[in-house]
Simulated assay, not measured.
Amino acid sequence: MAARTIRPAAAAPEDVRIADLDWVDARRDRRVPARLYWPSAAAPAGSVPLIVFSHGLGQSRTGYSYLGRHWAARGTASLHVQHVGSDRSVWAGNPFEVLDRVNVAADEREALARAADVSFALDRILDANSAFAAFIDRSRLVAAGHSYGANTTLIVGGARVVRDGRTLDRRDPRFKVGIVVSAPPFYGERDLNAVLAAVTMPTFHVTATEDVIALPGRRSPVQDRLDVYAAVGTTRKALAVFQGGSHSIFTDRALTGGVTLNPQVKQATAEGALAFLDLAFRGDPSPLASWSETWRPILAVAPTAYPVGESSRNPSRRDRSRS
């Protein structure tokens, strides 16, 4: 079966409204910049799903634009949060101090601060003073992220660690689904199952056969992505593994992975996330099945839909009492 003709991965500018938001969390004295991709078509009140996206180490709110544009052009808003403690400033300054800056950025405190950034950004976009709040469907809130941002997604989804007998937990029950792209391991944790057992929201995991993380002082093979998927506590999950690719193919870089595969993986990732949301929110497995068949030529592992039962059709029912 030949791969289909590739459409442009990014929607035309007129299809999407883009707003840069410069927030400050006064309680933590921390800036939380964000970029919002919003559907340009008029939407009824309470009708727009929202994805809150967390970037990888050394990225910013302007990255992963192909995802924001694709999702917004198809009716799902995307709020891309910038984490000032682990954004592109990591690569600035004295090159001999990069390792120190990476270590600080990857520190446990920053990992928890990133989760707090995501929750704070959601607070602000849903605030009564927000121009967008009335149009957002609060039953369809999604956490998403790439690399370090995938860890952030899992943390707001319920991942927890124990330190000195105390459980560190930044779960935000408002998020009902997670999109987990290229998740690193939780460094320093020996029992991944214990960390991820409490993640019970539906999760869509994406990686590639050449998805190796190589940073100063850190290296993570593809198997780590598979181990994270296996350890997530819910059975309501699916895994897509692209053949070839790389860790950075999921960023806005246009050449990594090759000029042919790169746009295919980007388009497939953007589409696959929405297909999974149809399964998680509407209990409809057919979009994900169709997606798997369409992209099978570049998939080493094609995702299969989990069984659709009562809890699958209403993934937020159990959490509403906690919100």
Rank of each mutant, 00 (worst) to 15 (best):
A42D: 15
T62R: 14
R109T: 09
R109C: 01
H83N: 01
A19Q: 03
S311K: 15
I155D: 07
E271L: 09
T207G: 04
G58D: 05
E271Y: 09
W38F: 08
S119E: 00
T5E: 14
P39L: 13
A305M: 10
V222C: 02
A34M: 11
F175N: 00
R17V: 07
F175L: 12
R171S: 02
V142I: 15
P8C: 05
Q223N: 11
S47H: 02
P173D: 07
W23E: 04
R30W: 12
V90H: 11
W291V: 06
D224A: 15
L279A: 02
V162K: 13
S248F: 01
D284A: 11
S220G: 10
A302C: 04
I179S: 01
G257S: 10
V206H: 05
F135S: 08
L154Y: 02
I18T: 04
L57H: 11
D224L: 14
V177E: 03
V241S: 01
F204K: 06
T209G: 04
H205G: 01
G257V: 10
H83L: 08
T235S: 13
T304K: 14
A9P: 00
A10E: 15
Y229K: 05
A231I: 11
R163V: 13
A105Q: 14
A275I: 15
G46Q: 14
D278F: 13
A240V: 15
A302K: 11
L288E: 02
G158F: 08
E110N: 07
D100K: 15
V161F: 04
F135I: 08
R317D: 03
D20G: 06
T304A: 08
G258S: 12
V222M: 13
R170M: 02
I6S: 03
T207N: 05
Y187D: 06
G257F: 14
F276P: 05
R318L: 06
V90S: 00
A134V: 09
P49Y: 02
L261D: 06
K237Y: 08
N94T: 08
S130E: 07
R27A: 14
N193G: 12
V16P: 00
S248Y: 02
R322T: 06
S292H: 10
V162M: 07
L277Y: 06
D15L: 13
W38D: 02
E310V: 07
D319C: 02
A159P: 01
I18G: 00
L21S: 03
D252I: 08
A231S: 14
A150R: 11
T200N: 09
G217E: 10
R313S: 02
R166G: 00
N151Q: 12
A275G: 10
I155H: 10
D191Y: 03
D107L: 12
P185S: 14
R170N: 11
E293G: 07
A197H: 13
S78R: 06
R318V: 05
F120I: 10
L168S: 01
R124T: 01
D191Q: 11
S182Y: 11
R124H: 05
